[in-house]
Amino acid sequence: MILKCSYKYISIAKVGNSVNENEDNVLVPSISQLESEPIIKFAISDGATESSFSKEWSDLLVSCYKDKPFDLVNLPSTINAISEAWQSITFVIELPWYAQQKLENGAFATFLGITLNLEEKTFEAVSIGDCTLFQVRDNELIYSFPITSFEDFGNTPSLFATNPKFQTDFEKSVKYLNGQVESGDLLILASDALAMWIFKRLNQGESPWLSLLTLLNYEDYQTDFINWTFNKIKENEMKNDDISVVLINID
């Protein structure tokens, strides 16, 4: 029997920034894809604050995960093609001296993609940086990828770069995972600030996904989620950052 899946997601800007300054981007399947296709893709990407046009870069990365190969052999040509698309967007804009010089450094983003095969009950994940995949079964965390503990977070995660001069070695920095899914599993894709919070709550012996499931089940969950994260940031439980999460229920 083919598994089914359903999802909820949200992506919000850091407190103090406007909605269009959110540099995270998310890929989720359409309803028709969910109903008709056994292979379903999700992705999340967090554009680096210190680079410019990183929102456009993270957007292109998640969009291209839909139909470009991200395996280690094809990754260089894939990133090169996406980088050319990014350049075609940015190089037509007339910019002042500082924006031109900034642009020469290019844009940077972390990335996490997951391809579910609902027929074979498997998944493949690819990651660079600190966006994290959590797999939960029977209310227990059975796996997290590529980050495995709160202590793994640092200030300088590996990133996909538009400029090959600044690209870290793919073999060292890009991680791959193959896994299996069962009916009842919950998969969570989270950008770094929320992933850090999840690890913190896990360390306290809690099941943090229960709060996220409850929140994202509300009818007006956008407002509720924004208020919830605002309070967490105010209480210093979460770092102030763009926040994105995708919750995938396997049925």
């Binding site: 410019s52 929102k55 456009e56 500082y98 924006a99 900034k102």
Partner: peptide, 14 residues
């Protein structure tokens, strides 16, 4: 000053 400006530059301005 140049480096600080570039660090604070984003696509919409500084």
């Amino acid at each position: 000053l140049q480096q600080l400006v570039i660090k604070c530059a984003k696509s919409e301005g500084v």
